[in-house]
Nucleic acid binder design. Structure first.
Length: 287
DNA sequence: AAGCGCCCCAACCGCTCGGCT
DNA sequence: AAGCCGAGCGGTTGGGGCGCT
């Protein structure tokens, strides 16, 4: 069936929004709230279709929007969320308060993609490029080993990321306890009041550094076999001292194979956050 | 100063999803 | 169950800004 256009396009204005249009839309939404978007242009006196009004509001006019470039911390979050969710920009955006899917998508396409490639990581699969290239050469092997399409890393065992879960009810006791140790009760309760499991607040970078430095201490005793595996890609990439954690399989003693099986690497699984900072600074001058 | 090319991001387009009848 | 419709999502585009020659 042929889809009807979202609105009658005859006589509608296109292109950049004027300050006057912004003001009208802003006034209308602030006064009346977000109702049926199709009706908004008429009621607000705008020559735009409802869909454009909604986009303008969500991407530009919303008062809770943050402006400016994504911080290093936000960038790290985007990368990790992307490794788990794929190109689900709105899902990713929902974990970054004040950021829009459009903004994150743009930032990904213009900045993060390049940075990851520079680091030798394939932005699509979040796997080292050397492995991706190998797989391209040997498609049969790839299928046997990975058993899922490379384009959609998130589709296999998709779960909402639990690493950011800040509720005390969380089953993820490891992460919860890290946070409980690092934040005092007031901070923790404030987060709990404001956000549910799905709505994850932005943690202050300083708090995060604290969390991660604590976890470094505890992780130093864990799974030495992970870092001592003889797979070559880490050496090839000359990364700083990474430890690749198990991804949902605590009995797996080969970190690299585990990464391949899960078809992703998570920066949040880098136990030592300072190593990540070091990587960023050594690779493209961040931090 | 002018021309050119590149980069970035706001905006657009078209498809999908989910609720309703 | 099928169709309609509003809303949301993700990919793409176009134009403005900026640096370089």
């Amino acid at each position: 069936m042929g889809r009807q256009p979202c609105c009658d396009k005859v006589g509608l204005k296109k292109g950049p929004w004027t300050a006057e249009e912004d003001r009208k839309l802003m006034n209308f939404i602030l006064t009346n709230g977000q109702c049926c978007w199709r009706a908004v242009p008429k009621l607000a006196g705008l020559l735009r279709c409802g869909k454009r009004c909604r986009l303008r509001w969500t991407n530009y006019l919303r008062p809770d929007l943050k402006r400016g470039l994504l911080s290093d911390y936000e960038e790290k979050m985007v990368i990790d969320l992307h490794s788990q969710l794929g190109n689900r920009w709105s899902k990713i955006a929902s974990h970054l308060p004040g950021r829009t899917d459009n903004e994150i998508k743009n930032h990904w396409n213009t900045h993060i993609k390049k940075k990851l490639r520079k680091m030798g990581i394939d932005p699509l699969t979040h796997k080292p490029l050397s492995i991706v290239e190998q797989e391209d050469e040997e498609p049969v092997k790839k299928l046997q080993k990975v058993q899922m399409p490379l384009q959609e890393p998130a589709e296999k065992n998709f779960e909402e990321p639990t690493s950011y879960c800040l509720t005390k009810e969380s089953n993820n006791t490891k992460n919860t306890s890290r946070l409980e140790e690092s934040l005092d009760d007031d901070q923790f309760n404030a987060m709990n009041l404001e956000y549910g499991v799905e709505d994850v607040p932005l943690i202050d970078p300083e708090s995060l550094e604290l969390i991660c430095s604590n976890s470094t201490m505890s992780s130093s005793t864990s799974t030495p076999s992970n870092s001592s595996n003889d797979s070559s890609f880490l050496k090839d990439l000359q990364f700083p001292d990474f430890e690749w954690s198990d991804y949902g399989n605590s009995n797996n003693n080969d970190g690299v194979d585990n990464i391949i099986e899960n078809n992703m690497m998570s920066l949040w699984d880098v136990d030592d956050f300072s190593s990540w900072d070091l990587l960023l600074s050594s690779t493209f001058g961040l931090v």
